[in-house]
Computed example of a mutant assay.
Amino acid sequence: MQPSQESLHFQPHFISHDSLYKSTKNGLIVRELKESTKKKNMDLLSHVLLFLFLFLFTIPAKSADPLSEYCNTNTIISRNQTSANIDRLLSQLVSGTILNGYIATSYGKAKDKVYGLAQCRADVGRKDCSTCIKDAAKEILKRCPNQADARIWYDFCFLRYDIKNFFGEVDTSFGIFYLNVENVTNPKTFNKELGTLMDRISSKAVVAGNKGNGRDKTKLTPFLTVYALVQCTRDLSPLFCSQCLAIATENFQTICKNRKGCRALYSNCYVRYELYPFYFPLDSDSANASKAHHVSVVFKPQVS
């Protein structure tokens, strides 16, 4: 029987352009971030909004609370058949994920055809996976009722659908980062050990049979261990999986520099490290988890 995981996460705060001034005065830092890349097959946005909201307390994770969602407002559902096909697709995504932990499939024909992908974290048991993906299928329709391109992230699973075929493509145009607000006391040693650990588990993720997942830990001192996990969606080739993980870990060096913990969620990969056990099977020592404070960082594509 799988142990019940208690991970730490916070709901990202999204704000409209009309509320920027008020929200900034209330402590929400708004910043525009510019990115560029020459990597082939990378579809990175040149402009994204960076939102930070500081939480001074922790909130226990619940399966019914998604980490975030993305509803593409440029893909409004205009045909009843498309909406009906999304409902049927979601049913297939739920059953397929419960059975295999992952599914990428499509439903419908011509203009009404929809593509979907769902996946649970490879270390999560079937019961938790089943609960998570069922919640995701219900919640995504509530949060993105009129969008044909929708995505939803949970700690244990991820689900998306679109009217465009996205299978096998790397998409880092939208991402969520969760940061521990505390810094490590020995950043030089910590960052060196973390980099080595990330390289090691990223190499594991692209090995056939590992289902795009790599996880491991490194003991920093007799009393301190860093735990890390990476995972790609299983439709990606090893090359594209490596590219997605490289983008996520590269952002760690700036967004999460010297932090005690960080989590990155993209549509194709998930990367996380903490100074407490969070992946299964859990280590017995999880005392540090209750002391963690986090800040959420949201990359949100600009709408033209």
Results as ranks from 00 to 15, higher is better:
285 D>L: 12
82 T>I: 03
30 V>K: 05
287 A>L: 13
238 P>N: 09
87 D>H: 06
174 F>N: 03
33 L>H: 12
252 F>K: 13
220 L>C: 03
167 F>K: 04
263 R>P: 00
297 V>A: 12
44 L>T: 11
182 E>H: 14
58 T>V: 10
296 S>G: 13
228 A>S: 15
188 K>G: 11
17 H>G: 02
262 C>K: 12
141 L>P: 04
164 K>M: 01
80 N>K: 13
294 H>W: 15
184 V>I: 14
39 K>T: 08
53 F>Y: 12
114 V>P: 00
18 D>V: 03
162 D>Y: 07
133 I>Q: 09
85 N>H: 06
132 C>T: 03
6 E>V: 09
295 V>Q: 11
278 F>T: 07
54 L>F: 15
1 M>A: 13
13 H>Q: 12
60 P>Q: 05
66 P>W: 05
43 D>Y: 10
199 D>F: 09
56 L>P: 04
6 E>K: 02
279 Y>P: 00
17 H>M: 07
223 F>H: 15
95 S>R: 05
104 A>N: 08
32 E>P: 08
112 D>L: 08
262 C>H: 11
275 L>Y: 09
289 A>I: 03
201 I>G: 03
209 G>L: 12
106 S>V: 02
261 G>P: 13
148 A>W: 00
64 A>D: 11
34 K>Q: 14
225 T>A: 10
113 K>G: 04
249 T>R: 08
161 Y>P: 00
105 T>Y: 01
220 L>E: 01
292 A>E: 10
60 P>E: 03
296 S>I: 06
231 Q>E: 15
93 L>F: 07
255 I>E: 07
65 D>P: 09
152 I>P: 03
88 R>M: 07
141 L>H: 09
148 A>P: 00
284 S>Q: 15
6 E>L: 04
44 L>G: 05
226 V>D: 00
78 S>Q: 14
179 L>G: 04
223 F>N: 15
91 S>W: 04
256 C>M: 09
291 K>R: 15
83 S>W: 07
172 T>F: 10
287 A>W: 10
266 Y>R: 11
285 D>G: 12
176 I>Y: 12
187 P>R: 09
226 V>E: 00
99 L>S: 13
229 L>Y: 11
85 N>R: 06
